[in-house]
Computed example of a mutant assay.
Amino acid sequence: MIRIAALVAALACLAACAAPAAPGGTPTASSTANPALPPGYDEHPQRTPPCSTTSADSPDPAAGPLGPDGRPDGPAVRRVRERGLRVGVSQTGQFRSKRDLVTGELFGLEIDLAKRIAAALGVPAGDEGLRLVSLPTGGRLYSLDTAANREARADTALADVPEVDLVIAGVSATPCRVEKYGLLFSEPYGQTHSGLLVRAGLTGVAGPDDLGGKKVCSGVSTTNSDEVIDERDRQLAQRKRPLVAVAVNDTGDCLMLLQRGFVDAVYSDVLVLHGYRYQDPGTVLLDYHGPVTTRMAIAASGEQEDLVRFVNAVLHDMRADGSLQRANEEWFAGLPEHHRLPLPDDPHQR
């Protein structure tokens, strides 16, 4: 009996030591206590710290050297043309980037963008040319090769994040991300806002103020998570019963948690939530509009400005020939009108 007790104690210690870590590198007590919860599950997420950067401006595609094809040129562009293009994507965004479970192929607006950029670079389709890499929401921007990210990736929790050239995964272009990760954003290719998804049986809920004491899930280190934390803090300041902010490494895990009853709502990009509702008709997307309209852009290393200028040239062409508008209309045709925001203006339009 003594040996059995010792063995049980040792196994318990081993399980605790192997607890999954959040993207910041700190194991969370919640995920350690309940192995049914996904990696990085945290009921006490931290808000993104304030930053000194006030602009997320994107470089003008015409403000630099041009190649023989008339497009932006430079060392990063030439390197990608030689060894192929690696693009970090989601695989759980129904309309933007979703994996077909039968064929294994990825499809959606953001996959179309990746293919258009690869074609302009002369990179062939297939893993040897265009490689699409699935990234978790919380770690996606650490995948870019920047000085800040190289230092952060020395942390064992981030060491396995794959390196890519571009991230096209519903990333909101914010100044703080430019500062934190040392990246550059392309021109915006779309815009959206946050929404709330709940189970069909949850009644009397129209917005965050009706979720006091209930768990609201978002992807860690996202603008959505920051908004949830801000709502919680506002409710506390107004002496209301606050909601419980929950963060996970990948936003896709929030749907699983909602389905299993571990959380009561998912707070995310409304386009992502429409995809979740499409997957599970037992969910309800509330008629709620988050406080901020965000612009989605392609992220790249700030040390590879020529590649960002090239991407901007492609997006400029897609605006000019109408293919960007047509792609948005095709993929988001089934969304209610009040969730279909127009394309943002081209900041470099001449």
Rank of each mutant, 00 (worst) to 15 (best):
S301V: 08
D253L: 01
R319K: 11
S323E: 11
Y288C: 10
V308F: 07
I2C: 15
Q238D: 15
R131V: 12
N249T: 14
S143M: 10
R234A: 15
D345S: 15
D69I: 06
T53A: 13
P72W: 01
A5S: 15
N312K: 12
E337Q: 14
E151T: 11
L273W: 00
R116W: 00
S218M: 02
L285G: 09
A333R: 14
L37S: 06
L343V: 06
R47G: 13
V171H: 03
A15K: 09
Q91Y: 05
T156D: 09
C254F: 01
T53I: 02
V311K: 05
G213M: 05
A120S: 12
V89M: 11
P291Y: 15
V308D: 03
G25L: 13
P23M: 14
M256V: 05
L255H: 02
A63Y: 07
L37T: 07
P20H: 08
V308A: 11
R116F: 02
R3Y: 15
A15F: 13
V248D: 02
L324I: 07
P38D: 07
P136T: 11
F107P: 00
R295L: 15
D321W: 10
S323W: 02
D306Y: 08
G261T: 03
V266G: 00
A21Q: 14
A9V: 15
R232S: 12
P20W: 04
R309K: 12
D280P: 01
P175Y: 03
F185D: 01
T203F: 09
E151P: 01
D112H: 06
R78Q: 15
D317G: 13
L14M: 14
G282V: 06
A22Y: 00
R350E: 11
V270K: 00
P188V: 11
Q191L: 08
V161N: 00
E105D: 10
E82V: 12
E105I: 03
D145S: 13
P35V: 14
G275K: 00
Y142S: 10
F310V: 07
G252S: 05
F310H: 07
D250K: 05
G275N: 01
Q91D: 14
E187K: 06
A327D: 09
E187Y: 03
A114R: 11
G126V: 03
D155A: 13
H339M: 09
R96E: 10
